[in-house]
Design a protein around this nucleic acid. Structure first.
Lengths: 219, 219, 219, 219
DNA sequence: TATGAATGAGGTTTCATTCAT
DNA sequence: TATGAATGAAACCTCATTCAT
């Protein structure tokens, strides 16, 4: 008659639950958008019941917040260290950073958050603000400093560091955007490596044919 | 007892109603997103009743379609002519095209449609497909050809034309994106002109300090 | 500057307009039901504008009322005369009445109103009441009297006149109903005449084989 | 401050909810018609909230379908067995079938579905088709066979079995129809039993007075 | 902790009716 | 008389959230 309080039947790793919810939510938000994703979808993809989701997150929006939070933490903890206070020719650093970024962008997890923010920013502006504060406002100044140093030390022409960041990173972003939004991919496929190589060549040495040729042509 | 001459209940203005609806919808879709915009909002901003909107568009989605259609038509009608079959040094053309694009992008109407598409593409993929078909698939090949010519005629280094398009346009897109999504604007403000100038300098002649320095450094 | 009041351009037979509206409405109500018929449909089928319909009928419901009214008038004016006060063997009369009714029922116009009433009675019970008052309450008593006379004069068995009316008319109604509602038609087609012949044979002389045979079989 | 024990906001009764919804819907559809019945009406009559109805049925139309389905199932499961392959004088069988049918038709539940179909067939023709397929196409052939046998074995005159079905059942249907649609009821009330008795007398032996009389009259 | 039945606000769409012209 | 642009009420359906169990 009585139900002896036996030890937990299994205690399905209760600790990892919020993470699983976030994983499920991220996948679905990216696939279908925030609004079109039902809480029940998230729950069942995470292997939970709808109600259980609310044990971990007070609302659907909170899941999105949690998503951005989770993406933000490693940035703060990690990185930048090897960029900061760097002196010397910044070109090798930029090369490797660009390649790293390009590689990251092909990992689905990395772009998901910015993609989400681009879409949902209107509905949740605080989120975009948070992402900016925690991620962009930390990374951009470092890059800016790197370029400034490059100019100061004569490695670079005298260009505007802030604007130049756009010239460095913009092509990669556009590349992703064209592929993601419009399905426009170069003949050879996404080809992130080729894009970066092509871009670095232009970035450092310019689009124009070398001086000698130009003088010749000008004749 | 008195018949105060109130404003007429019905205003008869068949004229440009659909245009007005589109204008109102564009503004609201950009401001609040498609889903969060109620048809009634559109109606009242256009000075109509909810029902009247349905005299001109069979559904809310049709309004969005109409919006993209309207943005697409001028592209087909308009230009490219002055780009096609262009021969000679492409650099001046690229300069002016870039300046033109940059100028266009500061006009609210122009960016609105792509911004909308980036957000709503998930929910209405046909729209993005249409925009791609009608706009991008017309413009990109022309640019590609321009660059190919530049390479063939020795004005440019031997670079990949398709990928190079991203190096040319990407920075401007990123500039807009940073401003729009994250509110990140250079210290001097949007400064589209300065951005383009900075970018063109890098684009044509590279980020690196002139050859002389580099030879020196390479030593 | 002034618009001389010229004679009417054409004065498109303004008199017949209500009739045309009723015709259009009847066709559409039967085809699509009352609720699914838009006033604009009626108008355009009648060759009018939506607004013009309201010059003749104050509401959509009034059109339906007009329809029933119009169907009711001829009944009151016409008929019954030749049935009333009939004496002598009623069988020939019933035969010809039944054939007439059957013929009438194949005319689309005649069944339309009862069909409408069967469907819409719930929404407009007064209409059914009116039809009953003006049509059925006039016709049924006459039939009842006819049968009563037949019994009194020894032509018929002693049966209940009111209930017998159902035995006389029911099969024809069911025949129509099966065809109209369920599309169930005998192998030979609607075959109204055959149905009536078959039914009259049963009605007057019974389904059972003649007495002589029955006695034989009973042996 | 006090927590008055109000009725629980949520009642958990997964049991027979769909059945209750169907019951409520049937009652309302019959009373007010399909279109005039709001889903919320159904819900509250079933003791649910509007939204809960959609837990069991994906749409209002699905409720109607469910209604017809539910009416159809017992037919397939049930009877006909005792009719099929019957040999011998069919008259007792017809008598009892007719009495059974008449009895059934006085049960509110039974007529409701056909009544609904007559009304809504225009809007949902598939429903009428389903009812025909599952019910009528099963019952009618059996009746037809029964009559054929009666003719073959000399119990009946040589009549058309398909048409004769109408002569057998029609009066009962008309009786219901007159009562339901026009409120026309014999002086003695619905009197289903009397109707059937009167009809059976006519059906088997005819309306006309017995042979002897007729011979006399014919003289 | 976990479930999932139940709630109810909110928005799109239809269309009878009105009325300025 | 005639038009048809405009109105606005009404109802279906979705889904985030709650809570009895």
């Amino acid at each position: 008659m009585q139900t002896e309080p036996r030890g937990p039947k299994f205690r399905r790793r209760a600790e990892a639950r919020p993470e699983e919810v976030l994983d499920a939510a991220l996948a679905l938000f990216v696939e279908k958008g925030f609004a079109s994703t039902r809480v029940e979808d998230i729950a069942s993809r995470a292997g939970l019941s709808k109600g259980a989701v609310y044990l971990y997150f007070p609302s659907k929006e909170a899941i999105l917040e949690g998503l951005v939070q989770r993406a933000v933490v490693p940035i703060a903890a990690n990185a930048l260290g090897f960029l900061s206070n760097y002196t010397g020719d910044p070109r090798p650093v930029i090369s490797s950073v660009l390649k790293m970024v390009a590689h990251q962008l092909t990992q689905p997890g990395t772009v998901a958050i910015p993609k989400l923010l681009i879409r949902e920013m209107i509905h949740f502006p605080e989120l975009a603000a948070m992402y900016r504060r925690e991620v962009l406002d930390r990374v951009l100044p470092v890059l800016e400093q790197l370029i400034s140093n490059g100019v100061a030390e004569g490695h670079f022409r005298p260009i505007d560091p802030q604007l130049t960041i756009r010239s460095i990173v913009g092509p990669i972003v556009l590349h992703m955007l064209m592929a993601e939004v419009f399905g426009i991919v170069p003949d050879e496929g996404l080809a992130m490596e080729r894009l970066v190589d092509n871009h670095l060549a232009i970035l450092f040495d310019g689009l124009s044919a070398p001086q000698s040729d130009r003088r010749f042509m000008a004749t």
